[in-house]
């Protein structure tokens, strides 16, 4: 009996290690490629051990006319941070209103949730046309606004679940002490909701940083983001895999780090507050 148990647990460990390898090898392979010299990249058999080089990173950083990595990176950063802050600014009061006063009832909140489920192309084409008329194409401002389409539903629902958890009594005692409702929201509820705000910010950041389709269509030169810039490398006859891998690694590392940091909140955020 005991032997059987030991065998079973060894089997579990072996299977799990196998799964972890399958999950991570493609990512590791991309990072490895970014450090390989060209002959190792296009070799006819996979090269696992090699002399690393930084030439691709140096070239990506140096050839600004082909790949202005500093511009793309700062665009991504500015757009992502702005849309995240804006989403919180808009949704926190709304989430409060829904959580505390049930404003709009189930219909409104489920309508907001259903926006989260719509594919981006549905918005993309009309918004792209409207952007043409309003001269918002290729602007960071345009992207910041468009990213609200997916950040708002997510943030509203998640914040709502966090606010519902704050006991009403705390707010009520402040109200009795003579504070106005707005004062209570800004000075009592908002700080108490800090974990929720962190969770929402982290996940909005990841979503927005990784966004591709809107940025692909709505930007061309000045507002190009990191993901789109990297993917644009792929066109042309000779694909410079080393350079692309280096750029992709740079685009990927910040979100992987943030992802691990946000792990505590991930389940709650990704299920919009349903599972805690």
């Amino acid at each position: 009996m005991k032997k059987k148990k030991v065998a079973a647990s060894i089997l579990t460990i072996v299977v799990l290690i196998g799964i972890i390898l399958i999950v991570n090898i493609p990512i590791v392979w991309l990072i490895m490629t970014s450090f390989k010299m060209r002959p190792d990249i296009i070799s006819d058999h996979p090269v696992w051990i090699f002399r690393p080089t930084l030439e691709h990173y140096i070239r990506v950083l140096a050839r600004k006319e082909v790949f202005p990595v500093d511009l793309y990176f700062s665009n991504s950063l500015i757009v992502t941070i702005s849309t995240t802050l804006l989403a919180i600014l808009i949704t926190f009061p709304a989430a409060y209103s829904i959580a505390r006063f049930n404003t709009g009832g189930r219909n409104l909140s489920f309508w907001i949730l259903s926006i989260r489920m719509l594919p981006p192309v549905v918005f993309l084409i009309p918004i792209g046309m409207l952007f043409m008329s309003y001269h918002l194409l290729d602007t960071k401002f345009g992207l910041i606004i468009v990213y609200l389409t997916f950040n708002i539903p997510f943030a509203t629902w998640t914040l709502k679940s966090f606010i519902e958890e704050i006991p009403r009594e705390i707010e009520e005692s402040a109200l009795i002490d003579g504070a106005g409702r707005l004062g209570v929201i800004t000075r009592v509820t908002f700080p108490l909701c800090a974990p929720g705000l962190v969770a929402v910010s982290l996940i909005c950041f990841i979503f927005s940083w990784n966004e591709f389709l809107y940025a692909l269509v709505l930007t061309s030169l000045r507002a190009v983001t990191m993901t789109v810039g990297t993917a644009r490398f792929l066109t042309g006859y000779a694909i410079w895999w080393g350079d692309i891998s280096a750029a992709a690694t740079v685009a990927m590392i910040p979100v992987i780090v943030l992802g691990f940091l946000s792990q505590k909140y991930l389940v709650r955020g990704l299920t919009l507050g349903a599972i805690k």
């Binding site: 392979w29 990249i41 006819d44 990784n210 789109v228 990297t230 692309i244 992709a248 691990f260």
Partner: peptide, 27 residues
């Protein structure tokens, strides 16, 4: 658990790049 989650953080466009590299006919 951490090591099982990595792919879901990466941009889908970069997932596309990763597999275009890994599925290349020649190398």
């Amino acid at each position: 658990i951490s090591l099982l989650l990595t792919p879901m953080f990466i941009a889908s466009a970069i997932v596309g790049i990763i597999f275009r590299l890994m599925l290349n006919e020649l190398y």
